[in-house]
Each structure stands twice: as C-alpha cells, then as structure tokens.
Design a binder for these strands. Sequence first.
DNA 1: AATCCTGCCAACCGCGAAGCG
DNA 2: GCGCTTCGCGGTTGGCAGGAT
Length: 197
Amino acid sequence: MAEEEKRTSSSQEAEVRKGPWTMEEDLILINYIASHGEGVWNTLAKSAGLKRTGKSCRLRWLNYLRPDVRRGNITPEEQLLIMELHSRWGNRWSKIARQLPGRTDNEIKNYWRTRIQKKAKQGDSFEYQNQTMTDDASTSHSNGMEECSSSQLNYQMQPNMDNSDAFGAPSYNTDSSESFWNIDEFWSMNPLNGAGD
DNA sequence: AATCCTGCCAACCGCGAAGCG
DNA sequence: GCGCTTCGCGGTTGGCAGGAT
C-alpha cells in the first residue's frame, strides 16, 4: 500500500488512508481523545497526525474504540426491543441505538439486515419474532467476540496519557506490515488505568 | 482436500442538517 | 440572508470466516 501512497503523494488528498485501521492508528486516536476529548473530527484527525478523514475517525471511535461499546451477543431482550422500536420508528438506527446502551447504530443496522430482516422475509409476517428469539439464543455463537464484551471494562479517561508504549502488546496480527488487532483484548488490559504510571 | 456458498461485520460513500463567520 | 464547513445518519460494499457440497 505504501507504493500507492508514494505514487500519489503529490497531493494532500493522497495522504488519506482508507480501509482497516491498524493498531498504531487506534492507539493514536485513543490517546488523542483521552487527552483532548471528542469533537471537531477533521481537526482532530490532522492534529493527531492520522492520515484519515475526520469522518473515518469518528466512525472508528463511535463504533469500535469507545470503551462503553458492547459488541456481539445481542440478547433476546435487546432483539425484542430492536424489533419493537423498528416497527415504531423504521430505519432510524441512531435513534434505536440510543435506547440500547452500548450498542451502536451500525451494529443494530447490521444485525437487523443480516438476521431479522432476512427471517422476516422468510416468515413474511411477525410470526418470525418467536422464531428469531429462540433461534438467536442458540446461534449467537457465530460471533467469536461475544464472550468479551467491553461492558466488563473498568475504564476511565485519563488526560495526558500520551505514551502508547505503556500499553504493552496486545495480540495482533503481524503477518503483514499492518498490525491488526482485537480491541477487546486491548481494553481488557485496562490500558488507561495506570498506563501513565 | 478443494472449491463454492453464505453470513457477518467493519468501513466507506452520499446526502441532508446544523452551526458558524 | 448566504455560503461554507463540519457533523451525523442511513445505505451500501468489500473482505473474511465458517459451513456445505
């Protein structure tokens, strides 16, 4: 990928990175937000030295890096609530997400599209509700991350923690020049609690 | 054992709304 | 009041993993 960037490095826009986030980028973003807080994403992206759009930073933070994000293992109760709220509000995912603490609009949207909507088509009626309730309770294993919900994290923002080295080394893939990793492992280390000590 | 298919999730894109000078 | 910039939302896509054949 470095080659493509070199080729087009003549313009600033060529500096913009796309695709999966690396561990280094995540750390930079987490550190920066810990120090300065959220907001003004474009400025944040530049100030933090990230070659990402503000949009991309915001999405990454809200859907993945935020410590209170719960991922995977949507409970039958949550599913019922999603269906109820969707029937009331339609595809207002962000609105629905606000009623489900820790859930993101993106996750709910994905969940709806891949599971509920599909089964709705199959059943073609609200009878699918009971089906999906029982079905999902037994098939949620498909998500390998459900066991390590971020809700278990004891997280606190600590200003001025700018030493990413203090985080140690979560297990991430080093097969390529990129470093992909699992955020749940990262947060499970409580990096912001005592990372600066 | 190899290939194909399906499901799931992370991320990007486009558009409209809101805020600001 | 107007134009520009930024933010937030919803839709869509690409890639990976696991299962089926």
